Simulated scan of single mutants.
Amino acid sequence: MGLIHAVERIFPCAEHRFCLRHLHENMKTRNFRGLAYKQHLWKCATATTVAHFEKFMADLKAFDAKAHKYLSDIPPRQWSRSHFSGRAVSDVLLSNMCEVFNRWIVDGRDKPIITCLEFIRTYLMKRIDSTQKNIMKSDGVLTPKATKVFELIKKEASKYSVIYNGSRMFQVTGPNNEQLVVDMGQESCACRKWEVTGMPCKHVIACIWNMRANDPKVPRPELWVNQVHHRKRWFDTYQHAIIPLNGRDMWPKSNVTIPILPPKKIATAGRPKKSRRKGLLENDNIVEGGKLSKKGQVIKCGICKGAGHNRRGCPTRGGAEAGQSSGTKRKSMEI
């Protein structure tokens, strides 16, 4: 919590969001386990409007009131797209970007501070160089990832029809009686996807096509996308290279007379762990050999079909096995 308060003080406009994967792990520790809980959670988190969010939360309440109470105590602006402000122009619900970076620097984290920083600096040099090469290979207005996503959105937009009201506003209708209002003057859509992601949704693209049919000077759909998804912004982000350094034997000597001592460290038993700390229930469903665990399942007997015991502990095991063995002998004799 200290880090959260520090970030709020230094970056007062920054939005604090929770990773949905970790939120789901916390639900598991409170016995809200199973695929149904996960599906309800993701429906609430991926809803882009407050109306849909409240509908999915009501469905969760009908399914499990305690799980609904647990999620209701968490501010939705920190985990549901329906309450994101749109200032960050991102609908990311997971912390995968941080996890990937943490994975790549795992070999340098247990080194002394200078060695660790040198490891990270070298890795970032390689990463920036690799990204710059990918930028040079790509073309178009948007980044390759944004282009792929935008093409799927345009494909969906072909299913919608548009009615213009004469003042930069449109009524868009589509499959399943869907009907939404798009305000091109405010650059907003009732579904809020354009506002949250910075990328025009299928309803907006249908409106842009309608506008271009009447006025060829209207910019094409790609130019309505927020600058964060443009290839030029991608290039500007990675144009600042990290300066290489000489080895330690060529570093200038410091004239500071006050020595900086390392922090006191209490040696613990065993080697320090390098692997990521896994969740409390992360490996509950897996055992050695990749087989699924039977934890929580009711054991059924293969002989009497009763619950709570297996074939080995079946009370009718003797008579049943005797009958099976005699039947087998009788069948072999008939053959």
Rank of each mutant, 00 (worst) to 15 (best):
Arg330Val: 02
Leu280Phe: 12
Ala58Gln: 13
Pro12Glu: 05
Lys331Ser: 04
Lys300Pro: 03
Arg77Leu: 10
Arg168Lys: 15
Lys217Asn: 08
Asn102Glu: 06
Leu117Ser: 00
Ile105Trp: 07
Ser158Asp: 11
Arg87Ala: 11
Val218Arg: 05
Pro263Trp: 00
Thr143Tyr: 05
Trp251Lys: 12
Gly166Met: 06
Glu151Tyr: 01
Asp284Ser: 06
Lys111Ala: 14
Val50Phe: 10
Thr328Leu: 13
Thr328Ala: 09
Arg220Cys: 10
Asn285Val: 01
His40Ile: 04
Ile153Pro: 15
Gln227Cys: 09
Ala267His: 07
Leu20His: 03
Ala45Val: 01
Cys201Pro: 10
Asp139Ser: 12
Glu288Trp: 08
Lys137Tyr: 05
Lys331Asn: 03
Gln324Ala: 08
Leu180Thr: 02
Ile10Ala: 12
Leu281Arg: 08
Phe101Cys: 12
Ile10Lys: 12
Pro12Arg: 09
Ala6His: 10
Trp224Leu: 13
Ala146Thr: 02
Ile74Pro: 13
Ala65Asp: 15
Asn310Tyr: 01
Asn310Pro: 11
Gly140Cys: 12
Ile335Pro: 01
Leu180Arg: 11
Pro75Phe: 02
Gly318Met: 09
Arg33Ser: 08
Asn246Arg: 14
Met136Val: 02
His230Lys: 14
Cys191His: 06
Asn134His: 12
Lys148Glu: 13
Gly318Trp: 09
Gln186Gly: 03
Ile303Lys: 07
Glu195Asp: 07
Asn214Cys: 05
Arg231Gly: 04
Asp64His: 04
Pro252Tyr: 00
Cys191Trp: 00
Ser293Met: 13
Ile74Tyr: 08
Arg121Leu: 10
Ser82Asp: 06
Ile4Gly: 04
Lys133Leu: 14
Gly289Ser: 07
Lys331Ala: 11
Tyr164Trp: 14
Ser332Trp: 03
Pro315Lys: 02
Ser85Asp: 11
Val7Tyr: 12
His68Asp: 15
Gly108Ser: 05
Lys300Gly: 00
Asn285Ile: 00
Gly2Asp: 10
Leu23Trp: 09
Met27Gln: 06
Ile113Pro: 08
Ile303Glu: 03
Tyr160Thr: 00
Met97Lys: 04
Cys44Ala: 15
Trp251Asn: 07
Pro315Thr: 02
Asn255Val: 00
Val89Arg: 12
Gln132Ala: 10
Arg317Asp: 02
Leu281Gly: 03
Val100Lys: 06
Ile163His: 06
Arg30Ile: 01
Met57Leu: 15
Glu321Ser: 00
Val162Trp: 02
Arg21Gly: 01
Lys38Cys: 13
Ile299Leu: 15
Pro219Leu: 07
Lys291His: 06
Pro272Ser: 01
Cys13Val: 03
Thr173Asp: 09
Ala146Tyr: 05
Asn26Cys: 09
Asn177Ala: 01
Trp209Gln: 08
Thr143His: 06
Lys264Ser: 09
Val204Pro: 12
Tyr238Val: 14
Glu8Asp: 08
Ile242His: 09
Ala320Asn: 08
Gln239Glu: 11
Ile286Lys: 13
Ile205Val: 15
Asn165Gly: 04
Arg121Glu: 05
Ala320Gln: 08
Lys329Gln: 08
Asn210Ser: 06
Met97Gly: 01
Val100Ala: 15
Trp194Ser: 03
Asp110His: 07
Phe32Pro: 01
Val287Phe: 06
Gly308Val: 01
Leu280Tyr: 06
Lys294Ser: 02
Phe56Ser: 12
His240Lys: 15
Tyr70Trp: 14
Glu334Cys: 09
Leu261Arg: 14
Cys44Gly: 04
Pro216Ile: 02
Val162Gly: 03
Arg277Tyr: 09
